[in-house]
Design a binder for these strands. Structure first.
Lengths: 205, 205
DNA sequence: ACCTCAACTTGACAGTGTAAAGATAGAAGT
DNA sequence: ACTTCTATCTTTACACTGTCAAGTTGAGGT
């Protein structure tokens, strides 16, 4: 009733974010193979060549989507940790559960984030987002110490490998009803956490 | 000088295997993105449509390549285990080192084997090869037991998650010179293995 | 009002996967 | 030895995709 917007303007106004949103939506509904530059452009309402002004090709868009992914990923872990009971061990369990929940809720995005087309080094925003996610893990592992004189990063990588490995195998394994993952839940893995992070015996926390 | 073979015969004779060989070669030299059906066909010396008789499209070829990959993967672990010192713990360490060595030697093949285009369930040969590789892990974990009354699969998945996670993160992380993986070697992870598989304290093997 | 440049659109090309139709060679049957 | 059938290709075509170049348009600055 009021003045109508004329035909679609040449200037989208926020195309970069719209393309990223479109990409995440395509991943969520169609999986990794559904993500194409032309489909993102179509979803955002522009021509197939419009993204080229905002991204260095499909790999540039993938990097931007991964950056958004790492931000949401960190949020999952932080939100989970905020709800944890007040012990170091519970906080660690909480962020690992957050890790797994993210992969359950966003399997294709997670796969893209750690996929073969990702190059973290030249993309500062991606590197920053990935480092922030890692920092959540690092600071939650900090209270624990396998070896007080050792490299704290060892414990971090140990825990990260365990969790990431489980998540990755689960994503792959879910297509095999009789696969080895079928009856081992992540809580079974978490039950082992005290031994792994040096919380058994005389070092409870 | 003796009788020459005439022009290239219409029947390749062993095209299926030749296409798989070509695919593995392309992966090895050019990475995951270098693998295409047409390049495999060209390498095998046939037209682009010839593979269609042997595989259900590119995904069919990927499945066959993954099957070959799992066979080589098992060989890596078995060869490593055969050379291990004569203790259960050494044998387990050996197959995990074999696991990692395979990913170092064949990063793109490993990525394809556990990638998003793999569907184990409908492909019996792939399922068999993957199960065989898993069986190597399972039988090498068998001597250990976190909980004698518990599910032995828990320990298997724990060890597999840890190793696979480390390998996967290393493959991704290797593009980041300052990444968190930079100074944690797999031997650092293996040092923790006794705690993880219940070999610390009064249960040495 | 004019100029500059960012932000697009249009068109084209190369590479890719897949499908259909046709050709050929080898195997099997007579 | 000949015929028939089928497996194993080749050729052609189409749709989709990424990328590039040229052109157009709108916003911002002077």
């Amino acid at each position: 009733m009021t003045s109508k917007k004329p035909e679609k303007p040449r200037h989208h106004g926020n195309l970069r974010e719209a393309l990223i949103d479109a990409g995440i939506d395509l991943l969520q509904h169609g999986g990794l193979s559904a993500l194409t530059l032309r489909k993102c452009a179509a979803k955002a309402g522009v021509s197939h060549a419009a993204p080229a002004h905002h991204f260095s090709g499909l790999d540039g868009l993938i990097g931007a989507i991964a950056t958004r992914g790492f931000t949401q990923f960190s949020d999952y872990m932080l939100t989970s940790r905020a709800k944890a009971a007040d012990s170091d061990a519970d906080r660690l369990r909480a962020i690992l559960n957050g890790y797994i929940e993210f992969t359950v809720d966003h399997p294709a995005l997670f796969t893209l984030m750690f996929g073969s087309r990702i190059e973290i080094d030249p993309d500062q925003q991606l590197a920053q987002a990935a480092a922030t996610a890692y920092q959540v893990l690092a600071e939650t592992c900090a209270p624990f110490s396998i070896d007080p004189d050792g490299n704290p990063r060892e414990l971090e990588i140990l825990v990260w490998s365990l969790c990431h490995g489980y998540a990755s195998l689960r994503l792959v394994g879910q297509v095999t009803p009789d696969g080895p993952m079928n009856d081992v839940g992540f809580s079974d893995i978490l039950r082992r956490l005290p031994d792994i992070v040096g919380l058994s015996g005389d070092n409870p926390k």
